[in-house]
Design a protein around this nucleic acid. Sequence first.
DNA 1: GAGTGGTCTAGACCACGCC
DNA 2: GCGTGGTCTAGACCACTCG
Lengths: 229, 229
Amino acid sequence: MVTTYRDIKADILGKITRGEWRPGSLIPSELELAERYGSARATVNRAMRELVEDGLIERKRKAGSRVRLSPLRQARFDIPVIQREIEGQGASYRYALVHSEVVPAPDWLRARLGLSDGAEVRHLVCLHFAAGAPYQHEDRWINLGLLPQARDADFSAQAPTEWLMAQIPFSEVEIGITATAADGDLARHLDCAPGDPLLQVERSTRWEERAVTYVRLVHRLGYRMTTRY
Amino acid sequence: MVTTYRDIKADILGKITRGEWRPGSLIPSELELAERYGSARATVNRAMRELVEDGLIERKRKAGSRVRLSPLRQARFDIPVIQREIEGQGASYRYALVHSEVVPAPDWLRARLGLSDGAEVRHLVCLHFAAGAPYQHEDRWINLGLLPQARDADFSAQAPTEWLMAQIPFSEVEIGITATAADGDLARHLDCAPGDPLLQVERSTRWEERAVTYVRLVHRLGYRMTTRY
DNA sequence: GAGTGGTCTAGACCACGCC
DNA sequence: GCGTGGTCTAGACCACTCG
């Protein structure tokens, strides 16, 4: 018979979705809401904090809480491990290593990761298959200055992502999503025509300010990232 | 000289990033951590809850808290209102209505939004410019069954997004991101060549289970969505 | 059964930011 | 100044789930 923070959150959400509390309007203070709901202020506070997180309201000390003018603010995309994503769709997963070498980092990579002149990297090209068909092309560069053990690691059976997760506990990541045209290599590997539009995800990873890896993931023709909220 | 939940969160995060607490390993219970940090359990609880949200740890009653095996789980993308996005880059914003009509919903749209046979929609094509150059092409369809006032609304000066935000307080949204090739129209409007790869964002919006609008946003050549975490 | 997280309470102090 | 949100505390009860 208690009022939970979920109840309060749902009730307020309802008032907003039904238009009872219009965008931009002021919401009663925590103290007043606590009285109304017959709960402690901390409970109301938790409900309100989650509404802020969900992008529905804005709060300022003294000024109070308001319904946001544009309630749709951010979307979350799950970025699953590729094998899980594919098997989650009920398809079989297969991994293949296409190319592997140790090279001095090219200029564009040095600039992107902030590597010094002459830094060496392990360069890998891999393919991920779903139900036998190419699904994702992975172009991976690993900083040997930070991860020297990557020089001799065996990536013929284990995908770089898996290997990396075992090496570095947690990292800071920067993600970019663009559309790109298939070049000859991509077309061949992803079984499409040169010039076809493909969704490309780039990811740069750092650990304590130092570059770990850069990867360019190009998805098969027609691939679609989705989310809802 | 108190220990805040932020302090605790940062400390635990540090132990994880430094590899002191390896992925999969068990974290001390809230009660023990509260004693260690000399704080209340609620404070530890808040720190831990945020770490769950950030995708770093997993918790189960009785079983305890563990460092996640794959710490990188989800990314958030801000989806700003287009005008803010452009002006936030220091560029001038301009809006133009290209085409407007009221038509029976085509089959593909009826299927996508779950509209009944013969449902009418307002179809709009708009352009958003940044610093005079085309930035985004908007192909918008509004369900007149739910929003009859859209039939006669004037979209020559106000973008549909703005207008919609004033009509519907909050909605459920489904987003899809794909790469697409420019057709003749898109190439002309976005000032690129036919066949060029473009980033396309599709959004279907519902309000209390009923379809509000479907929009296809196609960005200029080279557009990049970014985020970090 | 018992340990762990999930949540609520009642009270308190503080910091920010309008007025 | 002073109202509002931000946070901490100490204690409590409960629900889940592992052993």
